[in-house]
């Protein structure tokens, strides 16, 4: 079951984000590009919501609107009923490319938010110790980001966000670029944290196995312009464990999601895909053509 705001790690005050008829249009020179159109989207309180879609469908723009880095052309973004007007400590993001401040140590990075708030040093030290131990980086607190591996950098960024106890944590394809092994372990680590501490999480990815492994709810977006195409309830039990990837329910959900993604992706796909299908189909029809089956 999801966490209840364990001790000092979270106050249990989780947020709910709602997008109401959100449209985002970019204008450059004479070109107008409608990236998002009439998006209605709810990120449920305390749940891990995953957002998927083909490259270029506007996922990053959507989360930028939630974080307050950009503003919608039409429609509104609400956090617990109040409209979002700009960046804030209640909505923190872990970016695709590492956004650790390279000139600060892990400790300084993680405590940045607290220091900028003017918190007392003793209080900061306590909080930092707890969170650094949680992410397993306490011994590395005096190292610089360049001295850490990719996985460790991501964990540091998680710590930097979580220490401020935001109402929603947004993860923008955070494990992209990590090697497969580190990625797997980061997924386990991250979902473990979520299950233990809880919080409203919004996670973007284009890796389907990652999406299903993590999610309570999975949303698929359409391709240009972006809107919400479908919502899939991922009813796999928690705590999530890796062997679930081989369960039939997992594969069912996977196929469902894949079909939806395929529909959207084929809009942006050049020729070849259909023909390959045809080839396999043809092979099935006349088995003697398949030399492999000898």
């Amino acid at each position: 079951m999801t966490g209840n705001g364990q001790g000092r790690l979270s106050s249990g005050n989780f947020g709910e984000v709602r997008l109401d008829g959100v449209t985002k249009i970019y204008e450059k020179d004479d070109k107008r590009q409608t990236v998002l159109e009439d998006v209605n989207f709810l990120v449920e309180r305390g749940k891990l919501t995953v957002l998927m879609g083909p490259t270029g469908c506007g996922k990053t723009v959507l989360i930028n609107l939630i974080a307050g880095y950009e503003h919608p052309t039409a429609g509104s973004v609400y956090l617990d009923g109040a409209p979002v007007t700009g960046p804030g400590r209640d909505r923190l993001m872990v970016f695709q490319e590492t956004a650790l401040f390279p000139w600060m140590t892990v400790y300084s990075n993680v405590t940045f938010g607290c220091r900028v708030q003017g918190m007392a040093d003793e209080v900061i030290k306590d909080k930092a110790e707890v969170i650094l131990n949680k992410v397993g980086l306490f011994e590395f607190r005096d190292k610089y980001p360049t001295q850490l591996s990719g996985g460790m950098q991501r964990r540091a960024e998680l710590a930097r966000a979580m220490i401020n106890d935001p109402k929603i944590l947004i993860m923008d394809e955070p494990f992209r670029g990590l090697d497969a092994m580190t990625r797997e372990l980061m997924q386990e680590f991250y979902v473990g944290l979520f299950e233990e501490i809880g919080r409203t999480n919004l996670f973007i990815t284009h890796e389907i196995d990652e999406a299903i492994f993590l999610a309570d709810k999975l949303f698929i977006m359409t391709y240009q312009p972006g809107r919400i195409k479908a919502e899939i309830e991922v009813d796999l039990p928690r705590p999530r464990e890796f062997h679930m990837l081989a369960s039939s329910r997992f594969m069912e959900i996977r196929n469902q999601a894949l079909d939806l993604l395929y529909e959207e992706a084929s809009k942006a796909f050049a020729s070849g895909s259909k023909a390959a299908f045809d080839l396999v189909g043809a092979l099935m029809a006349s088995k003697d053509k398949c030399k492999r089956c000898e």
Binding site: R91, F95, A99, F101, G113, V116, N164
Partner: peptide, 23 residues
């Protein structure tokens, strides 16, 4: 994204100058 991260974490313009832009 560094500037965005700093803003989200509560940095005000003077913080952004001294702690982000300068270093």
């Amino acid at each position: 994204s560094l500037k965005w991260a700093a803003s989200s974490l509560g940095a005000k313009p003077k913080d952004i100058f001294w702690r982000i832009l300068l270093p």
